[in-house]
Amino acid sequence: MSRTFLLLLQVLVAVVIVLLWHVASSTGLFGDPKTIRFFFSTPVDVVTRIGTWFAGGTIWYHLGITLLESALAFGLGSVGGVVIGFWFARRPMLAAVFDPYVKAANALPRVVLAPIFALWLGLGIWSKVALGITLVFFIVFFNVYQGVKEVSPAVLANARMLGMNERQLLRHVYLPSALSWMFSSLHTSVGFAVVGAVVGEYLGSSAGLGYLIHQAEGVFDVTGVFAGMFVLMAFVILIDWIVTKVENRLLIWRPRPATAAG
């Protein structure tokens, strides 16, 4: 299957869905179009709304806020995860003592923390960043911990015989191994950073994509909700694409899984 053919099929799926949506909301084929419009809006309205947002420029502000929150959550959560993951992996005693608490904290659904963070940190960006951090931290933490633990004993023994001291082992062996595990979970952790930001905004804020969707829902503006969702999807796909590029660059040393010939 060629790339263009695949792309064609992928586009076809979108076209069919939008077409069905359009037909349902403008003809009587699937029931009363007025009712359907109330619940689902129409593709034309949604596109028009998105157009207005971008033309008016207001959307950029909200996108910027969400992006900033996601980036901060990802950055701070990753740094925390790397540092603590490293520390725990190199101090088995510490890891053993904190093990039940780490598991308990990770088991907690993070959404319930959002109101508490809003209480502690206000309705500005930091309560959203904090929520994102609690999501990103654990993914990075577990991966880094695993990465340090699973360094090949042969590579480690070889590095020692090559004269590396503890600090050099950290830099040339443990850190690259841990980072490779972290990068392999980059899609998940970046995705969670965005989730944290949007959910935080949704539950209480004055800016961002989550806020936009929440506002629209508050006044039964279904067009606004759908428009917000589509912008959010496009935003996530764009970020995911960037992450893929970064990943390919950083993990160049990794053997690529054999891809089936198209």
Binding site: S152, A154, V155, G163, P176
Partner: peptide
Amino acid sequence: YLFQQDSLMPWKTALENVAIGLEV
């Protein structure tokens, strides 16, 4: 010590792997 198993650092190029013993 030349080991039986693969013991090169997979994240370093051949050149970096050879140079590391001197660099450290």
